[in-house]
Nucleic acid binder design. Structure first.
Lengths: 114, 114
DNA sequence: TCCTAATTTCGCTGATTAGCGAAATGAATT
DNA sequence: AATTCATTTCGCTAATCAGCGAAATTAGGA
């Protein structure tokens, strides 16, 4: 039960849900997520570490960037089922749809100069 | 998304999960829930109002007692699916099993004299 | 009607947390 | 080696929330 409560806490935040849904479409780096979410780097980074601690995502340094993606290799049954349910429940959401459109046209070489 | 976030917030609490699981077994009044949870009346009542606001449960005054039960007639698809998933996920949990045993032998005429 | 009992509401406290800006880290490029 | 750039960590603030005890409410029984 303790683990499940932790998972619900992680999911009780709008920006974390948006991050999860975006990453379920394709891997992204911190500055790309920051661009779409409209919050600071430090806050994005904090959300990512919370999602990673809970087992939802994994990170990998590639060249200049740290790419984040959904942890598809998790053995945690809650995580697997919930990621699928979230896609099912939220794929029609206006905000999520808008995020999906934006991540199609991101150019990380342009937006990271802050 | 806003509604889903609210639902996750409601589920991010140990005592609320225990209440939901107990009520999924049988209807109970406030003093019975208080007896099993080991917290004060005011706190139980607060949790129940949060669960009711979110659409998880309904209440009905019957005689001296207010009986609470799962809102099986909800049209909210999140609620229906989540209540089923919770039973599935938590039916093997030690705490939940212990709660299930306790509610079998509750006598509300005895425990309500506080 | 008065009293009792079950429940709810109110005011408070301590703990948690999302947000920010600034400083620190660490790898890649010059 | 020094610099630049992407990211993380730190310290702070404002907001939210679970818990409690006391007071208020409300309905049933004497």
């Amino acid at each position: 039960m303790k683990e499940l409560i932790k998972i619900f806490k992680v999911l009780s935040d709008k920006n974390r849900l948006r991050i999860l849904l975006m990453l379920s479409r394709k891997p992204l780096c911190v500055c790309e997520l920051r661009e779409v979410l409209g919050i600071t780097f430090s806050t994005v980074s904090k959300h990512l570490s919370i999602l990673r601690d809970a087992g939802f995502i994994v990170s990998k340094k590639e060249g200049k960037w740290v790419n984040y993606k959904i942890n598809f290799s998790t053995t945690d049954t809650y995580i697997q089922q919930i990621v699928m349910l979230l896609s099912f429940w939220l794929s029609g959401d206006r905000q999520i749809k808008s995020d999906f459109e934006k991540i199609e046209f991101l150019d990380r070489n342009k937006i990271c100069n802050v």
